[in-house]
Design a protein around this nucleic acid. Structure first.
Lengths: 337, 337
DNA sequence: CTGTTAGCGCATTCAC
DNA sequence: GTGAATGCGCTAACAG
């Protein structure tokens, strides 16, 4: 037999007050005498009472739930983002409702389901909201923030990395170290900030006079793909002396392919740059030069954007592009000798 | 101005029926004429109506939320478990409410907060519920399943790996390949199934006559720790010829430490076995022999346990210990020559 | 500062 | 098979 659930009525009876008083005792900043508040709280704790958040949400027409739509689980260190996001949100008194994106076409449905739970806000990791869905969210006054995507033109708030700035840094780095033929390897072609990176590299090298991008391949994601790809690149007439990969694991595959399969020396014959600064990048076997991902700032910024819009729903959409730093290790040539 | 929210009343009016009919139209298996159901559904879709799950939860006194308490984010591939768990649960019509364990002492609080949301069930990843909390859950008839922990004596359901079986396999494998002095490296000392593994290795080697465990260290977790640790071990009088690490990254650190810092050959001088079969284990630079983690079966089993208890709350607690397989690569000696 | 009243949106009795 | 009434547990608006 399930123990009878205790409600505010029970607490009110025990404390000898009205249910409203109980409610007030649990509402921060409500006008209630310290004495009665104390009495209510004591009664509550002896009964083991906890307010029913569902009932509260019903008449407040809003919950303390934040919907978190997660994609790109395997890529990158986005799980860190997920963890940090959940931790920060909880610290601010919100709970997270997690949904995985299984089918990109169904993002509208996913959002709809979260809406049924009266979520107070929405975080979308590694995915862009379709324009119609984004518009619906703004209409409902639902604060929304994209993480790791920019979502240009959808009107969503976004937190991502400054791809153009990053691309310029990488290009300068490679040019300065006398590279001449660069290959660009990425997983998918349609990720906005990666586009920015790659375009910046292309433009900056093109104007250098000494260096150019000789290949820009997509569909290359992960160790195996990287390892296969570098062999393919070296079977062409024109071979690269520098490779930038959109993901560390790809870069490590490139390194192993170059060394093990092609017998090349890194960085003498080929410089390799990764992205993400995942754990293996720092390990002794590869010492990969890569791009750090500012997890903490990304999350901090995303949470900040959300909270400020929760307070003032009329704020304009905001896109924050964070700076990243190159972590220079041994997989790239020295500056000069 | 926020658009007026549409409720079952609006739909009822448009369809020319009562709110009860609307409710029935959205309740699977309710007694409603197909014709009226169709009319209601049409009205609902023209209005863009979706039932308010919060209101439903209130009078059903239960939501479709499953609380997911997550720990051990960084270790292992438990994020895969998280992803799969969320995907499977969603497939069965449940939503997941995610909470991170920041402070192990506060697990009771975390559970309490989830309870406020009337969660229908609880999943706890990489953590054990304190006995009092576990008892409270059974009292409330809240199905609970531990993942990656056994939680002996707490009465919770659990899905984990069969540590004793695994330990025996590892011991047999090492003995068969003529290892004599084994070192055991793990992160924390208090994880039940890792205890089982280590104990089994100790016992089995002890009775072999040819092989023994010469070190069992805890606090060794991750690449750096593993790399440091192997040097320390080789500064002792008695050095190991085989190492088992509770985590792949530790094992890779051991390999790099042995090769780079100590100039040893693997597997000639030292065999290394990891655990988890994380991506880097299969890469060319290490080719680590390791233990696969049956993510899919773990999740499948956990979800099954949950769903069956959601149907019949009176089922007895169940513990499922899954078998794991050794993935043999090049970091361990050949059988014989 | 406090109690009373009236819903939040829905699912469930019960009559019909 | 359907509609009218009732209440889930709580907060908000109102008097006092």
């Amino acid at each position: 037999m399930a123990t009878k659930r205790i409600t505010s009525i029970d607490v009110a009876n025990l404390a000898g007050v009205s249910v409203a008083a109980v409610s007030r005792a649990f509402t921060p900043g409500a006008s209630i005498a310290p004495a009665t508040k104390k009495r209510v709280l004591e009664a509550a704790s002896t009964l083991g009472y906890q307010p029913n958040v569902i009932a509260r949400s019903l008449n407040k027409r809003s919950s303390q739930l934040v919907g978190l739509l997660m994609s790109g689980w395997n890529n990158f260190g986005y799980v860190d983002v997920l963890r940090l996001l959940s931790e920060r949100l909880e610290a601010h008194g919100y709970e997270v409702m997690l949904k995985s994106v299984l089918d990109r076409e169904k993002i509208g449905e996913y959002v709809g389901q979260m809406l049924q739970y009266q979520v107070a806000a929405l975080v979308v990791v590694s995915e862009v909201l379709p324009a119609a869905v984004a518009a619906d969210c703004t209409l409902r006054g639902l604060p929304t923030v994209l993480v790791n995507r920019i979502g240009r033109g959808t009107g969503s708030c976004a937190v991502s990395v400054d791809g153009t700035n990053l691309g310029n840094s990488i290009a300068d780095f490679l040019i300065e170290r006398r590279h001449r033929r660069i290959a660009l390897l990425r997983g998918r072609a349609d990720i906005d900030y990666v586009d920015d990176v790659m375009n910046a590299i292309k433009e900056r090298t093109a104007t250098s006079g000494s260096c150019e991008v000789i290949a820009d391949l997509d569909g290359v994601l992960g160790y195996e793909a990287g390892r296969r790809c570098i062999s393919e690149l070296f079977s062409r007439a024109e071979t690269p002396d520098g490779v930038f990969c959109s993901y560390d694991h790809t870069a490590i595959g490139v390194m192993d392919g170059a060394r093990i399969d092609l017998g090349l020396s890194i960085p003498e014959d080929l410089s390799v740059i990764g992205n993400g600064d995942r754990a293996p990048a720092s390990w002794g076997a590869h010492e990969l030069t890569t791009v750090g991902y500012p997890r903490d700032e990304v999350v901090e910024k995303a949470v900040h954007i959300l909270l400020s819009r929760l307070e003032d729903p009329d704020l304009e959409p905001e896109t924050a592009l964070l700076k990243t730093d190159l972590v220079i290790r041994a997989s790239t040539r020295e500056k000069s000798v």
